[in-house]
Design a protein around this nucleic acid. Structure first.
Lengths: 342, 342
DNA sequence: TTTAATCGTGGAAGCGGTTCCACGCAGAAT
DNA sequence: ATTCTGCGTGGAACCGCTTCCACGATTAAA
């Protein structure tokens, strides 16, 4: 018997279904003999009570909020996750957080389909990944409200996003004001498999700042590659092989900034004495290592995103808009004034 | 109407329930007029189809695995989580990971009760938190198999755990072999609200190593406090205020090691030149900052725990035991040989 | 002894969907 | 005119559990 039900158990034990249910919930009194009979029938048949049937029958509502994110590895997601948990904790309604980590970009859509098909969640928090029109329609059609924590707040989707362009500007401006002129950019490739434009936006800010400050733009100072510390390490090595070294690097994320710093040190140079490095995000790690960066309130964005979604779920026609605090420049120890003397 | 059902929608639209269902799933053909009638009825009533009823009816099984952990903040949980995701990804059966973050210890039991009551999960992965006998019975009674990723593998529970005592020994031994004799221990209080004995176990290893190497034990070199970087910082300040400074510190976790290092630097001393520091865990962060530590394969333990649970869920009578790889000493840059000259 | 209360139990109804079968009706084929 | 086909539709049955009501058998109270 593949999936025995309480009816099977009842039959096997020679009792009624009500009795089986009573044993299962050890509610009211069941005579000891009966109880053991039922229990052994359960064991023999390998019975497992259906979660779903139980929920339907008892009418217990517990809403699931799904979180889709590219990969649990990255610290920035941890921060956002923490914020979400916080928001869900506020509501002591029972919202459960269900994690969907998209390890490979091409499985993203497939996973989304499965989520919809399974009716696994009541609402969705989509971090960093972009939502295509097709996907938007899919979710709307299925009646699953969603909030994106992304960098492309397009077409009136519910979305929590920092101003990446401005953040890129801020970071670069900081370096410029310290007197740097040869500033490199290390970031993700603009066209990545997950489809998010973060790197390009921050790069645009970088460009704009260079322009405003009449600093030269040099294409060989722009190094792009897949996200991660190691790639940043390698990109920095390339930068260091150039005839004229940059005096500062703007890395589009803190993790990449770490890669840059490690590469610089490995080359026998010092940070910030020889080369200044600024990151982006302000993850926990950055405080520990004293990285200068742009704080984008990741935890808060998770918090606000979850709140927004809860609004959407509970009072769809009274959704209060949420505002992310402005980006902040956090100056720590990896940037310093540029002096010709050096 | 609080919770309109498809019957309400059908009535309002003047159609049968079958038709409503067809519209909902846009399956087979429904005439355009009918469709719009149904759709507007849905909108007016604020109908949301019940996830649970749908699942019961379609017979779609998707198992939920709950993860209970003290607090999402801590990097070590992220690593374990990653391992769990990995294991769940192997099975491309649909196992969903549901997160329960216990922010306050006293809410732990309450949350556990809610999980059981709600029948929210099919199995449970309990990280770090300990399971009392009462709780064990509760879960067994409810037919929820569970695996603990804890430090107290007692009474034949399914459990993945490193040998913390031995790990404490290894860390201390490393310092001793570098010639250190004045070795401090910074860790959690032995009796913490979450009930896990990690700190005490590692401390025991510390003691044993001191003894084996005939190094003096000094109670003022043992500093305990609530887990976290900040507390470790403060404890280290106390250590530095002592008349005779320790030459090395064994911190029971990497995060605490960071606190130690920061405190040492803040006091104008250098790591490892003045004081060596060794941590425990080998979280990602540690690689970045070059921390010497004991690797406990956190990701792997999450992975194995999830696998074990899946076994329990699918083939309860054929559970293959999982073995964690042995602890490894990872020597990086925060420890060095002690020389009297200094 | 009669009546009432209690206990253990069986089983129908219901939770809110989906699905399949049956039916009416329009248009095509005979 | 009759039969056939297919489309759009209604609604019963079912998914697997809980729960409540009913009922017979004890036991206690009157």
């Amino acid at each position: 018997m593949p999936n025995p039900t309480i009816y099977d158990v009842a039959k096997a034990a020679g009792v009624g279904v009500g009795t089986v249910s009573r044993v299962l919930n050890n509610s009211s009194r069941v005579s000891p003999e009966t109880q053991t009979r039922v229990l052994s029938a359960i064991r023999e048949l390998g019975f497992r009570r259906s979660k779903v049937a139980r929920q339907l029958s008892t009418g217990i509502q517990h809403r699931n909020i799904g979180v889709i994110l590219p990969n649990i590895t990255h610290p920035s997601f941890v921060e956002r996750l923490r914020g979400m948990q916080l928001a869900l904790g506020d509501q002591d309604n029972d919202y459960n957080l269900v994690l969907y980590s998209v390890s490979e970009p091409d499985r993203y859509h497939e996973q989304l389909l499965a989520i919809v098909e399974q009716a696994a969640v009541d609402g969705l928090l989509i971090a960093t990944l972009t939502v295509s029109n097709e996907q938007r329609d899919l979710l709307t059609q299925a009646g699953i409200p969603f909030v994106t924590l992304s960098d492309a707040c397009s077409d009136g989707l519910n979305c929590i996003s920092p101003d990446n362009r401005h953040g890129g500007y801020m970071a670069t401006e900081h370096l410029l004001e310290l007197g740097h002129r040869r500033i490199a950019y290390v970031g993700d490739e603009f066209q990545n498999d997950y489809g998010f434009p973060t790197s390009e936006l921050r790069y645009e800010g970088y460009l704009a700042a260079l322009k405003d400050y009449d600093a030269p733009y040099r294409s060989d100072y722009v190094r792009l590659g897949v996200h991660g510390e190691e790639m940043a390490h390698r990109l920095t090595e390339q930068l260091l092989a150039a005839p004229e070294l940059p005096t500062a690097i703007f890395a589009m994320s803190d993790i990449q900034a770490v890669g840059c710093i490690l590469a610089i040190r490995a080359a026998g140079l010092r940070v910030p004495e020889d080369i200044s490095v600024i990151g982006f995000d302000d993850v926990q790690l950055s405080r520990y290592i004293g990285l200068t960066t742009v704080r984008q309130h990741l935890e808060r964005s998770g918090y606000l995103g979850a709140q927004l979604l809860i609004d959407l779920l509970t009072t769809p026609d009274n959704v209060v808009p949420r505002q992310l605090p402005p980006l902040e420049l956090i100056v720590r120890g990896t940037t310093q004034r540029y002096s010709e003397l050096m």
